[in-house]
Design a binder for these strands. Sequence first.
DNA 1: CAACCGTGGGG
DNA 2: TCCCCAAGGTT
Length: 356
Amino acid sequence: MHASATQPRAADLLAWYDRHRRVLPWRALPGEQADPYRVWVSEIMLQQTTIAAVKPYFERFMVRFPSVEALAAAPSESVMQAWAGLGYYSRARNLHACAKAVADQHGGRFPDTEEGLRALPGIGAYTSGAVAAIAFDRPTVAVDGNVERVITRLFAIEDEMPSAKPLIRERVLALLSLERPGDFAQALMDLGATICTPRSPACGLCPWREPCRARIEGMQESFPRKAVKKTGKTRYGAAFVTMREDGAVLVRTRPARGLLGGMVEVPGSDWRADYELDDALRDAPVSAGWRRLMLPVRHVFTHFPLELTVFAGRVPLETEAPEGMRFTPFHRLKEEAFPNVFLKALEAGLEELQRP
DNA sequence: CAACCGTGGGG
DNA sequence: TCCCCAAGGTT
């Protein structure tokens, strides 16, 4: 007798989850109630970010900001610095705004409904469902990329993303376990992350291998259907690593909105596809004996690649920082909220300055 | 609603 | 090296 297609059941998923659930720093142990603050912070950090990248940030963040009140009371520079390197910095700005809203308008307690959470900054359709289900066991779902992959395979949904989203949500809601919504949400994500992976899914270990339409057709890796997205044109620019005689380095804070908003940078030019490197020194923040590094710093953002040519120079002790800039003592550089692209530029520039 | 918004790792 | 993509939200 061949295994005939059955209907997927939440019970099969939850039974699998009870045996294979991952242990994560923000996840409650079986039978324990999850801490909404930790769940919320983890969900924001995990947006478009891998668990491996998040773990060390999460641990440091919890030490530095142990409660939503502590986070709300912290200066924004401190929050941005704690986030530096994680990417998508609007998440950090919204996180801070959200903490203030919870502390000031909700008495330090997170709303315990999907709708209430959804109204807070940085909390959208996914995160509101995730926190409501995981931290408050509300009967709702959390549809992320994992879930979209699992569900489009399970039902062989041919619609391209993101137009398939409403149908996917409908299917997940139909499967939802009303007894264990929090575990159901986490089980679905664990399944997507460990079994129903983007490439080479381990269908033989899947609790839903029998009802999975995509596996039956041998087409599991072709879901979800997605249109190919095009990458932007490479942009070019100059960055200036300026060291004062006492070792202090010239930096400035970027505007609060937009790319790398609110983060710290070394001064530089605009980034354009047609940037003329020959004229780069007109973008220098101060006059110095600039040395141009031959190897540009390469960095890839979500929507465009960047080639940053670094100039390094020393300036006298009496040099004043231009308007909007400041000299940071060398030993405090590590406390600045540098995104990675500027860490790369800084490292390259400082190395050049060490040479005779 | 499509563009914008980082970064690191895996295949 | 290159490409894809990971627990998305905002505008």
